[in-house]
């Protein structure tokens, strides 16, 4: 049936777990694209046939007219599916910037198509230039702070010599516990390298 593949593409996107981004399905995407071209060809051939029979394409309502209409509608439908796929993924890609930060982990980067990667990088550069003109880092303090310092535990070896905002360096060995400025810790927590200790 016409338009089924386009809808499959979207079902794949909507059935993925909330907040997760599935791999860009370029294979199916190309197939829908090819379907569009096919509809376009058939639409043109039907219209040409009507013209050869000397009918007015605008007003004649014969079988060819309805055939052409169905191809036109299928084409518009497929376009909508493709647009929605790209649009909703772009939405998701933008939100990655706020959730994870300017550097994407490898396993997420693999799921993006090439143009989505470029889009992410450009979006990130724009945001950086905007924040530097404002002189405020908008990506930190997503949760309103209660205390400027928090206690954290390191979950993974991050490495030595990381410079914190107060110009001191810290050695974040695995399982070590630190008392940090929350703005320094926040990016590591959202990337899953540290966890906040409470109580």
């Amino acid at each position: 049936m016409y338009g089924r593949k386009g809808c499959q593409l979207l079902k794949e996107l909507s059935s993925s777990e909330k907040g997760h981004l599935p791999q860009f399905n370029s294979d199916l995407f190309e197939q829908v694209f090819a379907e569009c071209s096919q509809h376009h060809l058939e639409l043109q051939s039907l219209i040409r046939k009507m013209q050869e029979e000397g009918l007015d394409v605008q007003t004649a309502k014969n079988a060819d007219h309805h055939g052409a209409l169905i191809h036109h509608l299928a084409l518009v439908r497929n376009k909508r599916c493709l647009m929605a796929y790209v649009y909703n993924r772009a939405d998701n890609v933008r939100s990655l910037l706020w959730k994870i930060g300017h550097v994407l982990p490898k396993e997420i980067e693999e799921k993006l198509s090439h143009s989505e990667e470029v889009y992410f990088k450009k979006h990130s550069a724009r945001l950086k230039s905007y924040m530097s003109s404002l002189q405020v880092d908008l990506t930190v303090d997503m949760v309103p702070p209660k205390d400027p310092y928090i206690k954290i535990r390191v979950l993974d070896d991050i490495g030595e010599g990381i410079v914190l905002s107060d110009d001191k360096t810290a050695n974040f060995a695995r399982h070590s516990i630190h008392f940090l400025k929350r703005t320094d810790a926040e990016q590591f927590i959202s990337r899953g390298l540290m966890e906040e200790l409470t109580g």
């Binding site: 993925s16 777990e17 909330k18 907040g19 997760h20 981004l21 599935p22 990655l96 959730k99 994870i100 982990p105 997420i108 949760v143 209660k146 928090i150 929350r182 810790a185 926040e186 927590i189 959202s190 990337r191 899953g192 966890e195 906040e196 409470t198």
Partner: peptide, 18 residues
């Protein structure tokens, strides 16, 4: 009750296998 206010970004969390 109160609790951790910071959390790992949900996209990186792996509770279930896809």
């Amino acid at each position: 009750i109160g609790g951790a206010r910071f959390q790992i970004a949900s996209i990186l969390r792996r509770k279930r296998k896809p």
